[in-house]
């Protein structure tokens, strides 16, 4: 009798140990999944809190009649203008003109910046000959040269594209130059030991090593292209998002001014996100602090 109780007791003890452990494991897994999901939602939601509060207060201030709608139209009024402009096709037309200008300016200026950055980065003689002059030009603000550009190239597309190009040139130039010059000397030594040819030295070592800098240059250049675009279109034009803003301001259609500003912000953010996506794809080898 003694023996059976011992066995029975042993049996139940091991059962007890077993079953709850498994159940506990499963339960934990599920809750962990759930909390991970909830945390992700919460993390994303955190970014929305501030804008929503601001919009709500803004709407209330407008509706309560505390501020004149010509000074500060309500978010709803801005939304209505946006829908109206989109449906009439007006907005898309302006946007097309503006993006074309920005893209052309960026390609011309950024491309030149990249090429000269490579030239100056690789070739010390080019650095001595070009860099001082380019650094001098860099500090000249858009607004100072805009009148000259109009005087030289007229009110047409050329002066606008050139103004944008001037802005887009410098970040890519500086970052490319810097990227090439900050390649680890220890890796250069390895390339010498492995007898890399000059071409391989550039394609397999220097360009990949400089790529993080170059992509940062692309991001900064794109951002400046948008800023240059605004200056160019505000200086005088008959189409484009900038023109839409100037035109609306003259007729005190403040909600359209806001739509224009929002469009600049959204398109700027979208292009920036594209480059950042490119960064995560091309620089996945990087091992750096992610916050």
């Amino acid at each position: 009798m003694d023996q059976t109780t011992v066995i029975a007791a042993g049996g139940t003890a091991s059962d007890k140990d077993h079953v709850p452990a498994e159940a506990k494991g499963k339960g934990q897994g599920r809750t962990m999944e759930r909390t991970a999901f909830a945390e992700k939602v919460l993390h994303n939601a955190r970014g929305w809190i501030l804008p929503i509060v601001v919009l709500a207060v803004w709407q209330w201030v407008g509706q309560a009649g505390l501020v004149s709608p010509t000074l500060l139209p309500t978010p709803v009024a801005i939304g209505e203008s946006f829908v109206e402009l989109t449906l009439s096709g007006e907005l898309l037309g302006h946007l097309q003109v503006s993006t074309t200008r920005a893209a052309l300016g960026f390609l011309a200026g950024g491309g030149a910046g990249l090429l000269l950055g490579l030239l100056v980065g690789f070739w010390r003689k080019a650095e001595a000959a070009l860099d001082p002059s380019l650094q001098m030009l860099r500090t000249i603000p858009h607004l100072a040269v805009a009148p000259l550009f109009i005087l030289w190239f007229g009110f047409g597309e050329l002066s606008k594209v050139l103004l944008i190009a001037k802005g887009a040139f410098f970040p890519l130039y500086i970052q490319t130059f810097l990227g090439i010059r900050s390649v680890d000397a220890k890796l250069i030594e390895v390339a010498r030991v492995l007898e890399f040819s000059r071409t391989k030295m550039i394609t397999k070592l220097i360009i990949p090593a400089a790529l993080p800098h170059i992509l940062l240059g692309v991001r900064l250049s794109l951002g400046i292209s948008w800023l240059g675009l605004v200056v160019a279109e505000l200086m005088g034009s008959s189409e484009g998002v900038g023109y839409m803003i100037v035109d609306a301001r003259q007729f005190s259609l403040t909600s359209i001014v806001f739509v224009g500003i929002l469009i600049f912000a959204v398109v700027g953010k979208v292009t920036d996100s594209l480059v950042r996506y490119l960064e995560t794809k091309l620089l996945k080898w990087r091992d750096s602090y992610k916050g």
């Binding site: 220890k186 030594e189 390895v190 397999k204 070592l205 620089l283 990087r286």
Partner: peptide, 8 residues
């Protein structure tokens, strides 16, 4: 140090 190319 190993001096590998980090992008490879």
């Amino acid at each position: 140090e190993h001096r590998l190319f980090p992008w490879m």
